[in-house]
Amino acid sequence: MSREGQRERKMAPRGLYSPLSVVPWAAALLLVLSVERALALPEICIQCPGSVQNLSEVALYCNQTPELMLHARCCLDWKGTILGLDLQNCSLKDPGPYFPQAHTAVIIDLQANSLQGDLTNTFRGFTQLQTLQTCREQRNLCNSTGDTEMCPENGSCAPDGPGLLQCVCAEGFHGYKCMRQGSFSLLMFFGILGSTTLSISTLLWGTQRRKAKAS
């Protein structure tokens, strides 16, 4: 074999493993890994369609650390561990069977969902959770024994807004602490109010007239 042939044979392996030839292979490998990672998202991240809103607390938390990434409804680290979960406005009545996948989350947002039942056991094992945002139906304080004892004997507890209650007199009772029995007389009320107003008006008129004569 000639010297030129031997030289070409020796040069061939160097061209195959040159830095320029490695770059396309590395790019292709990264592309495959990124696709596999996207396809391997936990089910809880794609349980609800859409993505995390930019102004949500989960997005703000995720954007604070460069190593974290937003994918679908999750904030993940480079290992794929869920650190944030945003399921806002997903029409959920319960978190669903895949919710335990987010047990590593630091922040979870469940606002704008009609969640039902007691969620206490739902978060069992969520030892890293620091922020939980939920918006549920108004709590009826009248279901608490301590609050119902605030109402008088002839009254009953009724909700009066978020975190508020009122005591409603039973039928046939009215007045302070529902102690007066019988219907409330509107005729008597307006009669007393009218006579009082007339007396005060007459007194003021007479006083002002005297001052006018004196001047």
Score class of each variant (00 low, 15 high):
Leu55Tyr: 07
Leu68Glu: 07
Thr196Ser: 14
Glu36Asn: 09
Gly5Ala: 13
Met188Cys: 03
Val22Leu: 14
Asp109Ile: 14
Ser215Asp: 12
Trp25Pro: 00
Leu165Pro: 01
Glu8Pro: 01
Pro13Gln: 03
Thr207Ala: 08
Lys79His: 14
Asn54Lys: 14
Gly146Gln: 11
Gln6Tyr: 12
Ile46Arg: 06
Cys167Ala: 03
Asn63Ile: 07
Leu85Ala: 01
Val106Lys: 03
Leu29Phe: 04
Ile200Arg: 05
Ala170Cys: 10
Gln88Tyr: 01
Arg7Tyr: 05
Thr81Asp: 02
Ser185Leu: 08
Leu203Asn: 13
Tyr176Ala: 09
Asn89Arg: 15
Gln208Met: 08
Thr65Lys: 12
Gly50Phe: 02
Ser183Leu: 14
Tyr176His: 09
Arg9Trp: 03
Gly146Arg: 12
Phe123Trp: 07
Gln133Leu: 15
Pro24Gln: 07
Asn140Ala: 07
Pro97Ser: 07
Asn54Arg: 13
Pro42Thr: 04
Glu153Thr: 13
Asn89His: 13
Lys177Ile: 04
Glu153His: 13
Ala212Met: 14
Pro159Val: 02
Arg180Cys: 02
Ala26Tyr: 05
Ser156Asn: 14
Asn140Thr: 10
Ile44Lys: 00
Leu165Ile: 14
Glu149Asp: 12
Asp77Met: 08
Ala212Trp: 14
Gln138Pro: 04
Tyr17Phe: 14
Ala102Arg: 01
Asp147Leu: 13
Asn113Cys: 04
Ser156Arg: 14
Cys74Glu: 02
Phe190Cys: 06
Arg210Gly: 11
Glu137Cys: 04
Gly80Trp: 12
Ala212Tyr: 15
Gln130Tyr: 11
Leu20Pro: 06
Gly175Gln: 15
Cys167Phe: 09
Gln181Leu: 10
Glu8Val: 06
Pro152His: 04
Leu41Phe: 03
Asp147Cys: 07
Gly172Trp: 11
Gln101Arg: 12
Asp160Asn: 15
Ser195Phe: 15
Leu203Cys: 15
Arg124Lys: 14
Phe190Thr: 15
Tyr176Gln: 10
Arg139Gln: 10
Glu36Ser: 05
Thr202Gly: 02
Asn140Pro: 02
Cys62Val: 09
Leu85Val: 04
Val106Phe: 00
Asn140Tyr: 12
Pro19Leu: 11
Cys45Ser: 05
Pro162Tyr: 04
Leu204Val: 09
Ile46Pro: 00
His103Ser: 15
Leu85Gln: 01
Cys167Trp: 07
Gln53Asp: 13
Asp118Phe: 08
Gln111Trp: 01
Gly155Ile: 08
Arg3Ser: 06
Asp160Arg: 11
Leu85Asn: 00
